[in-house]
Design a protein around this nucleic acid. Structure first.
Lengths: 138, 138
DNA sequence: GCTAAAGCCGTACACTCCTACGGATGTACG
DNA sequence: CGTACATCCGTAGGAGTGTACGGCTTTAGC
């Protein structure tokens, strides 16, 4: 080849996207990447779970069927504002639903909250993050 | 009881934390909450995976063993700066390791990257987020 | 009816995080 | 040797996100 391999073929003005080094690897990966919709759902879910308050709320609701705002604040030892804000997002995403009885609002995991998600993410994930020094050499 | 149940017993100046409504539920949940260390590890991992670029890098490295920075940028159709920044964090967390060959740096999932984490989080999580309209009534 | 509690809502502030840019480093190649 | 390239680093700017505060609504009890 006489021309440079990555930025030498700018026949027009567009910022030519250079040629891959591992053509096969790129094509292989591109074909298996999640779709934009899947990616969006995934990152939304993971973002929700990546906040300490929200994650612990999910844990608490997983073991205790139903809890009100003030009891959640006691459980997590944070103020009720934080719990209120966290629940607002969890409800908006459909992960948590409420039942109102008098002036008390009881929160629980939504019926659509998939059981495998509970199992995988709320229970096993803890175990997995402990094995960071796992001698798996693949 | 003659005194109010939640804020009436401030014998000293400390901001007395009121009594729970569901004493049992709070105690039950508190006893099973993850420890601060576990919580920290979990939220760190979830935060890392909740970014679209980083998550897709993990996906790409899962299916194509090894990819360099510029090829990752091509695969995800983002600029190399974004990939570089994402990889910086993924390496710092130990999830991704590098192999240098000449002027090219190849990236791959760390050997310690637990296989079950690949399976659960990178493969099944996508499927799970599709079943949001699952008619599980528990 | 009046008071107090449970919870929600809207706003402002502070903070964190991502992106983009410029330059620096080390390496292939003629 | 000098040029082009792959990548990394530090920094500055802007967007997004969580927390704190005040006020509002509904309900229970007297």
């Amino acid at each position: 080849m006489s021309t440079p391999s990555r930025t030498g073929e700018e026949t027009s003005g567009i910022p030519e996207r250079g040629k891959p080094i591992d053509v096969e690897g790129v094509a292989h990966a591109q074909a298996r990447l999640p779709s934009p919709e899947e990616l969006s759902r995934l990152t939304s879910l993971l973002s929700l779970m990546s906040d300490p308050v929200r994650l612990r709320i999910l844990y608490a609701l997983d073991v205790s069927e139903e809890l009100c705002v003030s009891d959640l604040a006691l459980t997590l030892d944070v103020n009720e504002d934080q719990v209120g804000y966290a629940l607002r997002l969890l409800r908006a995403s459909g992960l948590v639903v409420t039942r109102k009885s008098g002036r008390i609002v009881y929160n629980r995991l939504a019926a659509g909250f998939p059981e495998p998600l509970r199992d995988h993410c709320l229970r096993r994930l803890v175990a997995l993050t402990c094995e960071t020094s796992d001698p798996h050499t693949r």
